[in-house]
């Protein structure tokens, strides 16, 4: 059976459903506008560990175990763990899976990893390779800053276009059976590079990729933005969101008023000093596995698009003069 529609959209006839989900966030996120939606706040960023990297790994492990627990399962019952994060060698996911002992595939799609893991998980479950797949991603402000930017106490100024890496993790268990929100379609993104070189303007680097995936999905499924209750992008931030609106208008989609960005939802940029908004794998992951899926459970949202966006940035190749490639993966969730 051909499970492809149009140019590159996948269709999942078995409708893999979200069986259990869990979100863990840091202190700043737990003070933001979505504070009541998250499952756990770790407070101060160390989470009882002696380094930021170990803390992030524990974040993901906690979210993963939380999701497995919510699904009423044990780690032994999960047949595949698809996880990733922002750090070199995907250490948060690797070390989280060291203790979870679930067959593991590490993923890297920068901030788009949550959608990437959900697509891979849906393919796994829909292809009957297992009953349950675990999808999780994480990011940590402090571990990301030291890897990609400056030491925490360095006295530099962040431009208004800069975004704030979310300390958080989200995980969910996909199942071939169940009544939870189901993944019906997915579009795998292509790398789009619009020549942006500013490491402090990730939103601008990602917006063209987001636009490309979104219009491809609409074309492939012969639908339009108004067919969905909401369209959630990952972490475009205020500037990336504005640019995406502009690009969609240029592509004759008019004003899309049901488009929201997880990076804009998670922080109050004015009072929390987060400049253009939240970013990181943990941004879209923690918002999806709390606010979005809980709203779907309450039937406040019935049919949505979730498109996590990633700036595939590396400080090494950026210093060699390369621009920042963007990518966006999309899934359709339905009650």
């Amino acid at each position: 059976m051909n499970k492809r529609i149009g140019e590159r959209t996948l269709y999942f006839p078995s409708r893999p459903s979200v069986h259990g989900f869990y979100s863990v966030v840091g202190e700043k996120e737990s003070q933001g506008p979505l504070k009541d939606w998250f499952d756990l706040s770790i407070g101060e960023g160390h989470f009882g560990e002696d380094s930021w990297e170990k803390a992030e790994s524990k974040l993901m492990e906690t979210a993963a175990l939380g999701a497995i627990n919510r699904a009423g399962l044990t780690p032994e019952q999960i047949q595949c763990f698809l996880g990733g994060d922002l750090l070199n060698q995907c250490i948060s996911a690797n070390y989280a899976s060291r203790s979870l002992q679930i067959p593991f595939l590490g993923l890297y799609g920068a901030c788009s990893t949550m959608a990437e893991s959900l697509i891979a998980g849906s393919v796994f479950v829909d292809g009957s390779f297992g009953d349950y797949a675990l999808c999780a991603t994480s990011s940590h402000f402090c571990s990301a800053e030291r890897q990609f930017r400056f030491p925490l106490e360095y006295g530099g100024q962040r431009p208004p276009t800069a975004q704030w890496t979310v300390t958080g993790s989200g995980a969910c268990v996909l199942s071939s059976q169940g009544n939870g929100p189901s993944i019906t379609h997915a579009t795998i993104g292509k790398v789009v590079d619009a020549g942006i070189t500013d490491l402090n303007n990730m939103g601008a680097a990602m917006a063209p990729a987001a636009c490309d995936t979104l219009i491809t999905f609409f074309k492939d499924t012969k639908t339009a933005p108004k067919d969905y209750d909401m369209i959630f992008t990952g972490d475009l931030g205020e500037i990336g969101k504005k640019l995406l609106h502009q690009l969609l208008q240029d592509q004759n989609f008019g004003a899309v008023d049901n488009l929201e960005d997880c990076g804009c939802l998670i922080f109050d940029n004015e009072t929390q000093d987060t400049h253009a908004g939240g970013s990181g794998c943990g941004c879209s992951a923690s918002v999806l596995n709390s606010y979005i899926l809980k709203k779907m459970q309450k039937k406040e949202l019935k049919k949505i698009l979730f498109m996590a966006t990633g700036a595939l940035m590396s400080p090494t190749i950026s210093m060699q003069g390369e621009s920042i490639p963007g990518i966006a993966h999309l899934i359709q969730l339905e009650n």
């Binding site: 431009p159 208004p160 276009t161 789009v192 619009a194 020549g195 942006i196 500013d198 303007n201 601008a204 063209p208 636009c211 490309d212 219009i215 500037i239 504005k242 640019l243 502009q246 690009l247 240029d250 592509q251």
Partner: peptide, 17 residues
Amino acid sequence: MKNFSEKNYQKLVSQHE
């Protein structure tokens, strides 16, 4: 994407910086 030019996009981006 049709009608997409890197140059125009970078001009658009600079308006937000």
